[in-house]
Simulated scan of single mutants.
Amino acid sequence: VASIGMGVHDDFTGRGFGRILLGAMVDAADDWLDIKRLELTVYTDNDVAIGLYRKFGFEREGLLRAFGFRSGEYVDAYGMARLRL
């Protein structure tokens, strides 16, 4: 099992960097490290990231209520995972 995290600065979104970064991590996990389960956390309002993660086989597994404090309020996040058994 491995947990991953990534971010793309606002100035560079929409250019494919997220896809490249996630693709490299998934490739390393699958082809080099033989990791069977990849986990991540994503804010529930980050539809672009959620869509990217789904394209790579991640599925939503749970809701983490009041996970983070952002812009003066608590926000929820999803726990997502990708299994390769």
Rank of each mutant, 00 (worst) to 15 (best):
V1M: 12
A2K: 05
A2W: 00
A2E: 01
A2Y: 02
A2N: 10
I4A: 05
M6T: 02
M6S: 02
M6C: 02
G7D: 02
G7V: 06
G7E: 02
H9L: 12
H9F: 06
D10V: 13
D10G: 15
D10K: 15
D10I: 14
D10A: 15
D10C: 15
D11G: 14
T13C: 08
T13M: 05
G14S: 06
G14K: 00
G14W: 00
G14C: 00
G14F: 00
R15K: 00
G16C: 15
G18L: 00
R19K: 12
I20M: 12
I20L: 12
L21K: 00
L21D: 01
L21N: 01
L21I: 01
G23S: 06
A24P: 00
A24Q: 07
V26H: 05
V26R: 06
V26C: 03
V26P: 00
D27C: 04
D27F: 15
A28S: 14
A29G: 01
D30S: 05
D31W: 08
W32L: 08
L33Y: 07
L33V: 01
L33M: 10
D34Q: 07
I35V: 07
I35F: 03
I35D: 03
K36E: 14
K36N: 08
R37D: 09
R37Q: 12
L38W: 07
E39W: 09
L40A: 09
L40R: 07
V42F: 14
V42N: 13
V42W: 03
V42Q: 10
Y43W: 13
T44W: 07
T44H: 07
T44F: 03
D45V: 04
N46P: 05
N46W: 10
N46Q: 13
D47E: 11
D47F: 02
D47H: 03
D47P: 00
V48I: 06
V48A: 05
A49K: 01
I50Q: 10
I50H: 04
I50G: 03
G51Y: 03
G51F: 03
G51S: 04
L52C: 09
Y53D: 13
Y53M: 09
R54K: 07
R54H: 05
R54W: 01
R54N: 08
K55Y: 11
K55S: 10
F58K: 04
F58P: 01
E59K: 14
R60K: 12
E61Q: 14
E61Y: 13
G62P: 09
G62H: 11
L64I: 06
L64K: 01
A66C: 12
A66F: 06
A66V: 09
A66R: 13
A66Q: 10
G68Q: 11
G68L: 11
G68Y: 11
R70K: 07
S71H: 12
E73K: 04
E73W: 00
Y74C: 06
Y74H: 06
Y74V: 08
D76R: 00
D76H: 00
A77D: 14
Y78V: 13
G79F: 15
G79S: 09
M80R: 15
A81K: 15
A81M: 14
R82C: 04
R82H: 07
L83S: 14
R84C: 08
R84G: 02
L85R: 08
L85K: 09
L85W: 13
